[in-house]
């Protein structure tokens, strides 16, 4: 007998939505029934090729379908999601939001994926947040982190027009999530676009302020454990080197520092492997959707 799957939809068949489609179609618990856009596009064509019902009729079309999806993955724009979210909620559909709208609680699957399984709407934060928050959490679960700072370097070609037009949004949201989800008292985020050719693979550096006598072996072990957890949904998530510990200085208020250097290589599903920033977003969204679906299926059983 077939294991039941949870019907889901993708709204916004652009770069992110199309990559997400490839990932969701591999899922053992999610069944992608619908893809909705607002204009005829390559993304809609790809969905139809894959045998998924697709329309340029937008959310109106989607909400007229039977059965309705249980979960919508939104990859349109923040503005579109702000308009769509109340309609999903009214129809009893839950939303995994990949836009920067941030209506619901922020979720990073490796860190707090289990905490919001019944939320009506969850936010996938930002690409830099998905890449770095697991490392901040890996340190903060071992020792207090009064301040954490992340630097995300991405290939210019992987930064879409939305990201470019509002780069402050990235800085604010990611910095806030480093604290709120990562568990640091204070967070700061920096993003750098690099146009080098061939394009550079996404790189992230995580600096955490720690006590002078923090347990360094425990931090290192925790970081390695967390890398494995993220690799479950982003196989190309790797450490470039062992965590680096620097001794306390006056400049750091007598604190020591641990630095974690990451590379995030994408799976190359629809987007090229260098665009690890986009891949980790779609992978995290797929993972989150699966966790929500498993919880629903579990409740049914």
């Amino acid at each position: 007998m077939d294991i039941p799957k949870v019907p889901v939809a993708i709204v916004g068949p652009g770069h992110i939505g199309t990559d997400l489609l490839v990932k969701l179609r591999r899922s053992p618990v999610l069944d992608v029934r619908y893809v909705a856009g607002i204009v005829e596009s390559e993304g809609l064509a790809r969905a139809r090729e894959a045998g998924v019902a697709a329309s340029a009729g937008g959310v109106d079309w989607l909400l007229a379908q039977d059965p309705l999806p249980r979960i919508v993955f939104e990859a349109t724009s923040a503005k579109a999601h702000l308009a769509n979210a109340p309609r999903y909620e009214a129809a009893g559909i839950r939303a995994v939001d990949l836009t920067p709208a941030h209506l619901g609680p922020m979720v990073c699957p490796a860190v707090n994926g289990e905490d919001h399984l019944d939320a009506a709407n969850v936010s996938m934060i930002t690409c830099g947040g998905q890449a770095t928050i697991p490392m901040v959490a890996a340190v903060s679960r071992v020792t207090p982190v009064p301040y954490a700072e992340i630097v995300a370097s991405i290939a210019s070609r992987s930064a879409g027009p939305g990201t470019r037009a509002n780069i402050d949004e990235f800085t604010h949201t990611t910095g806030g999530a480093v604290a709120e989800v990562g568990g640091a008292a204070r967070g700061k985020a920096i993003i750098v676009l690099n146009p080098v050719e061939p394009p550079m693979i996404m790189r992230d550096t995580v600096f955490c302020m720690i006590g002078a006598d923090a347990d360094r072996a425990a931090i290192t072990a925790s970081v390695h454990d967390m890398v494995l957890r993220v690799q479950e949904y982003v196989p190309g998530y790797t450490l470039r080197a062992e965590p680096q510990f620097d001794e306390p200085t006056d400049e750091w208020g007598g604190h020591a520092r641990v630095a974690v250097f990451l590379e995030v290589k994408g799976n190359g599903d629809h987007l090229p492997p260098y665009a690890g920033n986009l891949d980790i977003m779609t992978a995290a969204a797929a993972r989150t959707g699966e966790l929500m679906a498993r919880a629903e299926l579990g409740a049914l059983a």
């Binding site: 750098v192 146009p195 080098v196 550079m200 550096t205 250097f261």
Partner: peptide, 21 residues
């Protein structure tokens, strides 16, 4: 050689670790 740009000061540590290795 790697084409790092302004802001990527963190990569200096990464490069140093690599050279040391």
């Amino acid at each position: 050689e790697l084409g790092y740009v302004g802001g990527q000061e963190d990569m200096i540590i990464d490069v140093a670790i690599g050279l040391a290795a």
